[in-house]
Simulated scan of single mutants.
Amino acid sequence: MKELSQIRMAVLDALRGAGIQAMEVFPEKQAMAYSGVVAAVGVGAASGKTAGFCHYLGEMKDPETQAVRERYGKELFGQITVELRANRAADCERGCETATEVLLGGLPEGVRTGELTWEAICWEKTTGMFLRRGVLECRALFLTESAVESGEFLDFRLKGVMSE
């Protein structure tokens, strides 16, 4: 599902912007190749619902061409999972503090955060590293517009994330 990938990429970009090495969920052995704290990000359970009447949110006028486009939206509810690993417990704790700031205040406007919970730091025998797992409940809003020329719909994009 493209929308789940967009949520994951938004979180990865935000964590990287805050100086945390971050990647998609990976095999545990790969964590040992990094120094400092490394975050593995995934999107857990997700469910969706329509936003507006059958996804319809109304019309908007293109500021450049003045052409009218129809706007549609959908909403997903999900869990963002973050696993922080580090060789030292103190690095893991500092990474958790930074990640908390990012997850609760540094994500695009289309990701509405809910409850964030962190497990206690533990020693992970398989990697020989300290581990702290977190889960963020969230709601994500995706928007799309009809293409002016053809009337076809463009892909749904996470609100607040620039398109290329």
Rank of each mutant, 00 (worst) to 15 (best):
F142C: 07
R139I: 04
C138L: 14
L131S: 06
F156E: 00
M129T: 01
R132T: 05
C122Q: 14
F153K: 00
L141K: 04
C138A: 13
G134F: 09
W123Y: 15
V161A: 07
E152M: 10
L154D: 09
L158F: 07
W123Q: 06
R157V: 13
R133K: 13
G160R: 03
G151E: 07
A140F: 10
A120R: 08
M162R: 14
T126D: 15
E124H: 06
K159D: 10
G151W: 00
K159N: 07
A140D: 01
A140W: 07
T127C: 04
R157F: 15
E149Q: 12
A140S: 14
A140Q: 01
T117W: 13
E145G: 06
E124V: 01
L158G: 05
F130A: 00
F142W: 03
K159I: 05
C138Y: 10
V135Y: 05
V161K: 00
A120P: 05
S146P: 07
S146N: 00
M129D: 04
T117A: 11
K125D: 15
E149Y: 02
A120I: 04
A147R: 13
E145M: 13
R139Y: 06
L131G: 00
T144I: 00
V148F: 11
R139D: 01
F156L: 13
G128N: 07
V161T: 10
V135R: 13
F130I: 02
V135W: 06
T127I: 03
K125C: 09
A140I: 01
T127M: 03
K159A: 09
M129G: 02
W118G: 04
E124T: 02
G128Q: 07
S150R: 10
M129Y: 04
T126I: 05
E115G: 04
E145S: 02
E137I: 05
F130D: 02
A147F: 09
K125Y: 06
G134S: 05
E152S: 08
I121L: 01
L116W: 10
D155E: 14
F153H: 12
G151Y: 11
L141N: 03
L116R: 04
E137G: 02
T126K: 12
L136C: 03
A120V: 10
L154A: 14
T117F: 14
W123R: 14
L154Q: 13
L131D: 01
G160W: 08
I121R: 11
G128W: 07
T144G: 10
G128S: 08
L131N: 00
D155V: 09
L131H: 00
M129F: 07
M162S: 10
L116P: 06
F153I: 03
M162A: 15
M129E: 08
K125P: 04
C122T: 12
A120H: 14
D155W: 08
E149D: 14
E145P: 01
C122R: 13
L116T: 03
E145R: 09
A140H: 01
W118H: 10
V135A: 15
S146I: 02
E137M: 08
T117N: 11
C138N: 03
L136E: 03
G151K: 00
R133D: 11
A140T: 02
D155S: 11
D155P: 13
A147D: 14
M162P: 00
E152W: 06
W123T: 07
I121D: 13
W118P: 03
E145L: 12
D155L: 12
R132K: 15
A147G: 04
V135T: 15
E149G: 11
A147P: 01
E149P: 01
L116A: 06
R139Q: 14
M162Y: 08
